[in-house]
């Protein structure tokens, strides 16, 4: 036979072509592909030692909201805002009332006399029967109201858009703002990269504010002077991760902090001093990269988290030893 060498060469080439195609075909199946070499492994952060988890989930209240946004617990009732409405639900899950608004509320705070509902650029004051008593519209266009708290006749409005806390009398008169700027080098105003800016009063009547950009919780006097603060930055469970956490917090009856984080969602408790105490809910309980649940607590120390994805209130109770 002529050209034996060439024929052999050609056959080898044909074999190479066929194998290349076959290999490519089989190894580009989704489960045959190589692992992502550039994976950013944040799953490791989500694995949490069971001994650190101090709470267990006991009840869920499925809500009739498409987009819940805030929760407050007062006198045995949940006040939940979202969509264009507020619902009052008792601890048995009975719906006690529903109020409709013409815009989307962002947060709610309930005092003994009033219900305060925050919208993006306004605050409505309702009495406990749900009748509107007052509405304050004197906010800036770039305002984003994210949290409300009232103490001795002064309503504190956290405005994440303007990065300040505004004070109002219940009659609606502005009483000044807290900018959080002090001479102290450590703190330079509120750093709020995303619309999460929570404030609350503890049992002792101290105003606490989240400074999410600093991963800090700061205690101010009513006049706006920084009294004390603590911070915890870490991707590990002990601290707060990301650019703007904790997103929400609440106080337990003993003055401990309950915090919730967005992105890698987790709920934790810190001692009143700011020392890490334990985990309420690990990230595995939430959808990946979701919104931070708003928090509420009751007098017995139960924690209620408003899950924005599952649209329900999730009750966490302390594990029994």
């Amino acid at each position: 036979m002529k050209n034996k060498g060439i024929t052999l060469f050609l056959i080898i080439l044909a074999v190479i072509i066929v194998t290349s195609v076959t290999f490519d075909y089989y190894f580009s199946k989704p489960d045959e592909l190589p692992e992502n070499p550039y994976a950013l492994n944040i799953n490791l952060l989500e694995k949490i030692d069971n001994s650190k988890i101090l709470y267990t989930e006991s009840r869920n209240f499925g809500l009739n909201f498409t987009e819940p946004s805030g929760i407050c617990f007062s006198e045995g009732q949940f006040f939940i805002v979202g969509d264009q409405k507020m619902q009052i639900i008792d601890t048995f899950g009975k719906l006690k009332g529903e109020f409709k608004f013409d815009q989307k509320p962002t947060c709610v705070y309930v005092s003994t006399q009033n219900i305060f509902v925050g919208f993006r650029k306004s605050v409505s004051v309702l009495n406990r029967e749900g009748l509107k008593m007052n509405e304050w519209n004197s906010f800036s266009d770039s305002s984003v109201i994210t949290s409300l708290a009232e103490k001795s006749g002064i309503l504190f409005v956290a405005d994440a858009g303007k990065r300040i806390i505004r004070k109002f009398s219940l009659a609606g008169n502005p009483l000044g703002v807290i900018e959080g700027k002090t001479g102290n080098d450590q703190i330079h105003g509120f750093i709020i990269p995303s619309p999460y800016f929570d404030i609350a009063f503890n049992e002792d009547g101290e105003l606490w504010v989240v400074n999410p950009g600093k991963h800090a919780l700061e205690n101010y006097t009513v006049s706006g002077d920084l009294r004390t603060w603590w911070k915890a930055t870490s991707v590990r469970i002990e601290g707060f991760s990301g650019c703007c956490n904790p997103a929400h917090f609440a106080f337990l009856p003993d003055g401990s902090f309950v915090t919730s984080e967005k992105g890698t969602v987790r709920i934790k408790v810190y001692k009143p001093s700011g020392e890490f105490l334990g985990v309420v809910a690990a990230p595995s309980r939430f959808k990946e990269n979701s919104a931070a649940p708003d928090l509420a607590t009751d007098n017995e120390g139960n924690i209620y988290a408003l899950d924005m994805d599952k649209k329900m209130i999730r009750q966490f109770v302390k594990k029994e030893k």
Binding site: L10, L13, I16, I17, V21, F23, D24
Partner: peptide, 12 residues
């Protein structure tokens, strides 16, 4: 693999 196939075809 595409380079291999291409060169193989050219050599062929």
């Amino acid at each position: 693999h595409m380079v291999i196939i291409g060169i193989a075809f050219l050599l062929m």
